[in-house]
Simulated assay, not measured.
Amino acid sequence: MKKTKFLDKFLVAFFVLVAIKIIAMIAQWSQEAMQDALASVFKFIFFACIAVVMIILLQSKEKDPLPPAQKKYGGGGVPLDSSLFDRLKSMYEDIAEKHIQNNEYKKAAVVYMNLLKDYYRAAKTLEQGGFYNEAAAVYLKKLYNKADAANCYVLAKQYDKAITLYKELQQKEKVGDLYKIIDDTENAFLFYQMVIDDYLMSYQMVKASLVYRNKMNMPTEAQKVLLRGWEENHDPLNCLQNYFANIGDVKKLGQEIQEIYSRTPSDKKIIYLEAMKHEFKKAPELRVPTRNIAYEIIAEKVVTRSEIVNELKHFNPDDEVILKDISRYKTGRNKMFRN
């Protein structure tokens, strides 16, 4: 009842203001051209009529029950027809888009935040415009998204704030990266070592070696981890291939291939043979030692794994005779088993 009386009084006051405005505009006719003055009056009357309709709609909503086709929108709980809400939303979307086209990213963000209540798009718009601190604040306070907030702080070069968030998120490698950026090597290595320890706990030896090599510049430690992975059967082939790949000197690589093979147990020689297929192609100097190792492994395993003879072709790619020999061997062996 009180709201209805308020709307009635507001409507009366509104009409009084409209009348005063029209009189003031008519008074200016002596100063303006008649055509321009009439146009101004009609524009004002048009928008005033729209406002009156809105007020009457609100007044009728207070008197009648809310129809099923209507919903409540907005923080104040004012009932609005769903089609009207959709039109308002579309209008706000257009306004925000025009602000973005004009590079007015903060204004667009205000529309998304306050009128559309779309906090994610508000944050993304601020980020797009380079307002990283403001975007980070929206991510934190409205979306509770520490990861995106931390990324914005990095872009804003607010490294201390980013480090705090990444610590809370347990993203240790990123914490190490940021400490490295601000030349705090001691803390950077502390967090990198935590990352390595986590990888070693889950036997991800290659990933641990990459942190040693690429982040801490410790190639010797990286090789030790890879060799350990090979010896302890934690992704052995991948570890062995990465170990060999890190040796740039061909002569030293040949020596390492021979040395590791001399310590390779019989049950891992098939894996070693697979690695030799890759090393054989690296350099002409490696063809003889890798081929000899391959022959030795094939000769040792052919009794129990006859199909291993097919591997000979990888170490004699241009030798057509070897293919015929392989075919004859397989044919003869098949005949032996049939008899």
Results as ranks from 00 to 15, higher is better:
I322D: 04
K174P: 07
I181M: 05
D318C: 05
Y179W: 09
V111W: 01
M276F: 00
Q193M: 10
V321P: 02
D249G: 03
D319W: 11
K180C: 09
R328M: 11
Q35L: 10
T220W: 09
T331L: 11
A96Y: 04
F10T: 13
P65L: 04
A275M: 03
D198L: 05
Y105G: 01
Y153H: 06
G254S: 13
L80Y: 08
V309Y: 12
K98D: 11
L312A: 04
E256L: 06
K281I: 05
Q204H: 15
A108T: 03
A156D: 03
E134D: 15
K167I: 13
D184I: 08
A150S: 05
K277Q: 06
R291I: 07
C49Y: 08
V41A: 14
V41S: 12
G129P: 07
Y203P: 02
I270N: 10
H99N: 09
A162E: 06
S40G: 14
I308A: 12
V52Y: 10
I293K: 02
E127S: 13
P67V: 10
D160V: 01
I293A: 00
T4C: 03
M276H: 01
I326G: 09
L286E: 04
G77M: 06
C49M: 12
P79E: 01
Y243K: 02
H99K: 07
Y73G: 03
H278G: 06
E173S: 03
K3V: 13
A149T: 02
I326R: 03
C152H: 01
V225K: 02
V16Q: 08
S262E: 14
E307Q: 11
L140P: 01
G74V: 10
N339A: 10
K89A: 09
V53C: 07
I100H: 05
M34Y: 12
K2F: 06
P284L: 09
R87V: 15
A96K: 08
F47I: 13
S40E: 15
F46K: 15
K98Y: 04
E173I: 00
N187W: 03
V250E: 10
E104A: 01
F15H: 04
K141R: 12
E173H: 01
D197V: 08
E168Q: 13
F280M: 05
D118K: 07
M205Q: 04
F10L: 14
P65N: 06
L17W: 09
V110A: 03
Y243L: 08
A108V: 04
N103D: 01
G77W: 02
K117M: 06
A24T: 00
L140H: 04
K63N: 14
A39V: 14
A37Y: 11
P79W: 03
K142P: 00
V110T: 11
N334S: 13
F315S: 05
Q70R: 03
R338W: 12
R87A: 14
V16E: 08
N133V: 11
L169M: 12
D148W: 07
E97S: 07
L17H: 08
D318E: 12
M25I: 12
F10G: 02
R305N: 13
N246C: 04
L312K: 13
P67K: 06
S209A: 15
I163E: 07
V303F: 14
I26Q: 10
R213D: 05
M276I: 02
L11K: 12
A136D: 00
